[in-house]
Design a protein around this nucleic acid. Structure first.
Lengths: 182, 182
DNA sequence: GAGGACATGTAACACGTTACATGATTCA
DNA sequence: TGAATCATGTAACGTGTTACATGTCCTC
């Protein structure tokens, strides 16, 4: 049950409409918890129903009309409860590792290009994170909120770095035996 | 669509019944693609329907009776196709990073113990991977299949190492401000 | 023959994904 | 007025999760 709490977090940072939330997910929170606009609208309805958020009463609630939400006190309480909750880490679930395992059985033909493509994609993601760090977290900003957001960003950077390192190892292992030849 | 291919891989390594597959997922393939027995039975039915696997004809197919499956040629072809397929890496989806972000908004109260607990769990997982490496991959075994399975295991080890490093950083940041005091 | 382990399966629901539908606003 | 964009929403489906149901085999 992470999506509702991701939405509560985003709305506490700034009250927003569904589409605004979607955009903010695409470029910030979505880096570690992505969601489509359909999921977000569905969940906004549930959160409102549950009394954790409410639509700002300024506008008439017509279809096609922008509808802004803000977090109610019960929503903040629920989010704080969830932050301290005990949740076991889920085992990783990665299709690429699975494909390497499968390649051990049916052969690594065709894997080389795919590994190189992933390597490039992770390089770009890492560059993007590093740009964010440089832009949003210059040395000196040290409020609690800044420190925690930087911590999260460091997680993303370290994860991408892991992928780069591992993909290099994978290419060294697989690259030369997965070319166009049989 | 990874589960069917995880099952094809497991069945190619060794024909099995549904429950045997469930056990093998719990202690091997499931480290990077977990599945419950209900998912596995459902998927075995679909794979048989699709003509990619078949039940070994030796036993009478009665409810409660063991039913072993093996991969048909079409299943091997499909798996090889999937290995070389182009699949974008999915953005990570991690509730703990999300909770840290939320803690930036509602405060990190109660996070310390949770971080320490995760740290301990990841230490154990890492130790387990290292035990597997020592037991199943002694230096010298160099068949293609061995090399690729070792590569996957190295991925798991590096990921756990990432978590340990990052959780230490997180504790340094959060540990002292999330105690029992307000 | 009763209990427990083994084994397969159903049912219901939550979450995520894709495609599409509908209405409002803006601007040429 | 027509097209583009903004904005909210429905519908259908696939996967993952949880709880439970049913049947067989072994052992005491």
């Amino acid at each position: 049950m992470s999506l509702p709490h991701a939405i509560l977090t985003a709305l506490l940072e700034k009250p927003s409409s569904g589409l605004e939330l979607t955009r903010r997910f695409d470029k910030s929170i979505g880096y570690f918890w992505s969601a489509t606009h359909q999921q977000i609208y569905r969940e906004l309805g549930r959160l409102e129903e549950a009394g954790l958020i409410r639509a700002l009463p300024s506008e008439v609630p017509v279809r096609g009309q922008k509808k802004e939400y803000e977090v109610l006190p019960a929503g903040g309480t629920e989010l704080a409860r969830w932050v301290a909750e005990s949740q076991d880490p889920k085992p990783m679930r990665d299709p690429l590792l699975l494909r390497i395992r499968a390649a051990g059985v049916v052969g690594p033909q065709g894997l080389g290009p795919e590994l190189r493509r992933h390597l490039e994609l992770h390089r770009r993601q890492l560059a993007q994170y590093e740009a964010i760090e440089e832009k949003d977290f210059p040395p000196g900003r040290d409020a609690v909120e800044d420190r925690l957001r930087r911590l999260v960003l460091h997680g993303g950077i370290a994860l991408e770095t892991f992928w780069l390192t591992w993909l290099e190892e994978a290419l060294a292992e697989v690259g030369d035996m997965s070319g166009p030849q049989a």
